[in-house]
Design a protein around this nucleic acid. Structure first.
Lengths: 407, 407
DNA sequence: ACATATTATTCGAGCCTCAAACTAAATAAG
DNA sequence: CTTATTTAGTTTGAGGCTCGAATAATATGT
C-alpha cells in the first residue's frame, strides 16, 4: 500500500495500461528469456491477443527480436522472443578514487567493451578528461544506439540538484558531473552513490536476488556505505542522503570520525580502520615510532590488500586485524538485519576476498545479535563482478524496465 | 523507480486507468476538501469531462457527497464535493497490555464513538471478549455501513500468516486474532504492529506529514518500536518483521536483553529502562524506601508516570533519569536520522508529556551525532491524539485511498 | 438584454484489453 | 493420404477509458 504522492503524481491516460503491460512483458523477457508469446500470455495472465499486439510493438521499436523456434511434442512451434542485443548500448561509469572505468553493455547488461583510466585529482580536470574519454569511447562503435549513461560515484549524491555533494576520499565538494557529460555526449546521464548503485545492481541484475523485494548492499572500502532497497525501491530519504549507516555510532564514546560524530561504524570496520588496527598491533615493539610518524596514507602504511595477503600467508597480526574487522562488520550488519530485516545483504569490497575467514565471523556475530538473523542471508559480491559498474548500468536499465510512475 | 515484482504483479486492464484516477481524485478530496469538479480538474490535470464522470461514479457509490455552492465574483458557482461522512464507519482497535480500545470513525477518520475495556491476560479469553465487544459495539449503530476493521498490536505481526507472532508485554505467542474477529463480525480485519500503525497514522492522517514520503514513528513504552515509511510505503522487510530498531545494540558489551542480544537500544531508552535507572539512583540514600513503596505494577516499583510527575515536581533523581532517557533516545534516533534520513520522526509514548525537558536533549544529541540532522525534524505525538488507534483506522483507509497495485 | 466568465456536461475519436472466432503449423491415428 | 488433435498466434468486434471540442448552465457587470 503506497500513499499517493499528491505533490507529484501521474494521472492515468488511455495509454497507461499499455505502458504498464509493456513493461511487465519487457521485464518478463529480460529475466526469463527466451519466451514465446504463448509463454508470455501464461506468465502475465494477459490475453494472447494483447500479447501479440504488445510484442509486435516492442519488435517494431527494436526492443525485442524473434529468435529460434521451440520444440513441442504437439502443435505449432512457438517462436522465441529475446531482448534485442543489437539495439542499444548502455554506458556505465564507475568513478573510484584511484581509477575510473567506462563500460559498454547490451540490454542484457553484458559487457561489450571496457576501458579504465586514472581518476584525476582535480574535479574540473577530471570532468574534462571524462568527457573526452567517453566521447572517444562512443565513437569507436558509431553504429550502436546509445541508450544512456549511468554513473556510480564514491560519495553523497543529491537527487534533487543531481550533484555530487561530497566525496570524502576525493576531497570533492558540490560537483556537477551530470550536465557537462550530457552536453559532451548528448545522452541522459544518471548519477548515483556507489552503495546505492551496488544495491540496484543486485536487485536488477543478480540471479540470487530473484524475487526479492528488500535487500541491502554494504560497500566496504576506505569508508562504509549502505544502499537500501525496500519494497523493490531504493530508499533515498529526504534529499537522497539515506543509507549513511557507515556513520552511525556503534560506540558512544568511540574515537572521533571526520563526519563530526564519534565511534562511527566505519571507524571500526572499514579497510582504513583495519589498517590502523594492524599498524597499532605491529607497532608495539621498536617499529612504533617509525610507523606512527610515517603516518597518513603514504609512507610505510600497508594497503588493505597487503593485510589480506599477509593474513593468507599466515601472518597472525594481519589475521587478527581481519578478524576484528569481521567482528565489527557483523556487529554493524546485525543492526541492519534487526532494523530492516532484508532478505539479502550483499557485501562489496576487497574484504570479500577473505570470505572464508571473515564470512563465518560475520554470520556468527549476526546470529548472536539479531533475533531475525535467519530471515537474512549475507553474501559476498566479488569485486571481479564489478558491482558498482553493473549498478551504473542498472541505473539506466531501470528507466525502461521498472514499473511506470502512476498515481 | 520500482522494480516490478514478477512473483506477484497486476497487469493493467481496461479499467486500470479509471482505478488510478479515481484514487487520485478520492485522495485529493480527502486531504483538500471541499473541492469542486473544476478544482479537481486543475489539481489533477485530468480533463473536466473525465472528472465529471469519475465524480458521478464516486457519488453513485456513496464515496462522495455534493455540498454547498462556492462563491465566485464571476461565472457559474462551483458545487463542492466532500467525502461522504454518512457512508461508512471504520472500526479501529488498539490492543495494549493493560487496556484495549475500540473506536468508530467516519471516512475522515474522525471519531464517532469509542469504548475501552481491560485486556484479558489469556489470549483465548481476550479473543472471546474482543469479538463479543466489537459485535456489541457494531450493533449500537445498525444503520452504519462498516468498511472494515484495523487493529494495532503490541508485538511482532507476520504479514504472511497474518498472525501475532510475539507480544512480549502480554506474553502471547503465535495468536490468530484476525480470523476469529472476521468470523464474528463479517468484516475484513487488518492487523499491524503498533509502531507501524503509528507511522501509518502519521503519513495518512497528520497535517504535519503532508507531502512527506519518508518518516519514522518511534514508540516508547516498556520497549521501543520503530515503524518506517520510505517512499510513501511501510518497510516491512522479509516477513513483516522490519523496524525492530529497538533491539539494535547501541553498546556492544551492554546488559543482556530478553531478545538474546546485549545492550539493545530499548535497554537504555525505554520506560522500563528509565524506571530501572531511577530505582538504582534512589536506592543509595534513605529516600529510596519511600519512593519504592509508592509502587505500581509489582511490589515497590514506581510507574513511569510517577517518574514523570516527580520530575515535574522538581525531584532531581527523577529528572536525571528522564535526562538519561532523553540522551539515549537521541542517541538511538540519531542512528535512524543518519541511516534512513527521513523528513520526520515522530515520538510516541508517555515520555512526550515531558517534551519540554526531553525534546531539547534529544535534538542536541542528534545534532551532535548526525551529519544530516537538519533534514529531519523530530516531533512528539501526544498520547491524547491516540496515534495507535488512528493508525488502525489508517490501515483500513489505505485500501481505498492508496495507489492501486499495478505492475 | 447582452457580453463575459466560470463551471459542468455531452459526445465522438482514439487507445486499450478482452474474448471469441479463426488461421497456422505441427503430430498422431485411421 | 486424410483427418482429428493440439498448440501458437492473429483477427475482429465489444466495451471501458481519457481527451478535447462543443455545448449547456449559471452567475455578474454593463
Amino acid at each position: 500500500m503506497r500513499k499517493i504522492d499528491l505533490t507529484s503524481f501521474q494521472v492515468a491516460t488511455s495509454e497507461t495500461a499499455r505502458d504498464i503491460n509493456r513493461r511487465i512483458v519487457l521485464d518478463l523477457i529480460r529475466t526469463r528469456q527466451p519466451l514465446s508469446r504463448a509463454d508470455l500470455a501464461r506468465l502475465s495472465g494477459l490475453q494472447p491477443s494483447t500479447i501479440s499486439v504488445i510484442a509486435e510493438q516492442l519488435i517494431a521499436e527494436q526492443w525485442l527480436t524473434e529468435g529460434a523456434f521451440g520444440y513441442l511434442p504437439r502443435g505449432r512451434k512457438p517462436r522465441f522472443l529475446h531482448l534485442n542485443v543489437e539495439r542499444a548500448g548502455i554506458i556505465g561509469i564507475n568513478v573510484r578514487p584511484a581509477i575510473t572505468t567506462i563500460a559498454l553493455t547490451d540490454l542484457n547488461a553484458r559487457f561489450i567493451a571496457q576501458e579504465s583510466f586514472p581518476t584525476a585529482t582535480e574535479p574540473q580536470a577530471f570532468i574534462k578528461d571524462l568527457c573526452a574519454r567517453v566521447s572517444g569511447f562512443m565513437k569507436v562503435r558509431p553504429q550502436v544506439f546509445y541508450e544512456g549513461i549511468g554513473m556510480s560515484l564514491p560519495g553523497r549524491v543529491d537527487q534533487v540538484s543531481q550533484r555530487l555533494v561530497f566525496a570524502p576520499n576525493l576531497g570533492w565538494r558540490d560537483i556537477d558531473l551530470k550536465k557537462p557529460l550530457e552536453r559532451a555526449t548528448g545522452l541522459v546521464v544518471e548519477i548515483e552513490n556507489a552503495a546505492n548503485a551496488c544495491a540496484l545492481a543486485e536487485i536488477w541484475l543478480s540471479q540470487r536476488a530473484d524475487g526479492m523485494r528488500d535487500l541491502i548492499a554494504v560497500t566496504v572500502s576506505e569508508g562504509i556505505g549502505t544502499g537500501i532497497i525496500a519494497n523493490g525501491q531504493l530508499v533515498r530519504g529526504a534529499t537522497g542522503v539515506a543509507g549513511e549507516f557507515g556513520h552511525v555510532s556503534i560506540n558512544e564514546d568511540g574515537p572521533a570520525c571526520q563526519c563530526g560524530n564519534r565511534g562511527c561504524w566505519e571507524v571500526y570496520a572499514s579497510n582504513s580502520a583495519t589498517i590502523r588496527a594492524y599498524m597499532q598491533a605491529t607497532s608495539n615493539g621498536r617499529t612504533s615510532r617509525a610507523a606512527k610518524t610515517s603516518a597518513a596514507q603514504h609512507a610505510n602504511e600497508p594497503a588493505f590488500e597487503d593485510i589480506l595477503r599477509l593474513a593468507e600467508q599466515g601472518d597472525v597480526k594481519a589475521a587478527e586485524a581481519l578478524d576484528r574487522m569481521a567482528h565489527y562488520l557483523g556487529f554493524g550488519i546485525s543492526m541492519l538485519v534487526t532494523g530492516v530485516a532484508p532478505s539479502l545483504i550483499v557485501l562489496v569490497g576487497e574484504v570479500t576476498r577473505a570470505w572464508q575467514r571473515v564470512g563465518p565471523i560475520i554470520n556468527q556475530v549476526i546470529a548472536e545479535r539479531s533475533p531475525t538473523a535467519t530471515m537474512t542471508s549475507i553474501v559476498p559480491s566479488e569485486e571481479a563482478a564489478q558491482p558498482r559498474l553493473r549498478g551504473s548500468i542498472a541505473l539506466v536499465l531501470q528507466k525502461h524496465f521498472a514499473a511506470p510512475s502512476t498515481a
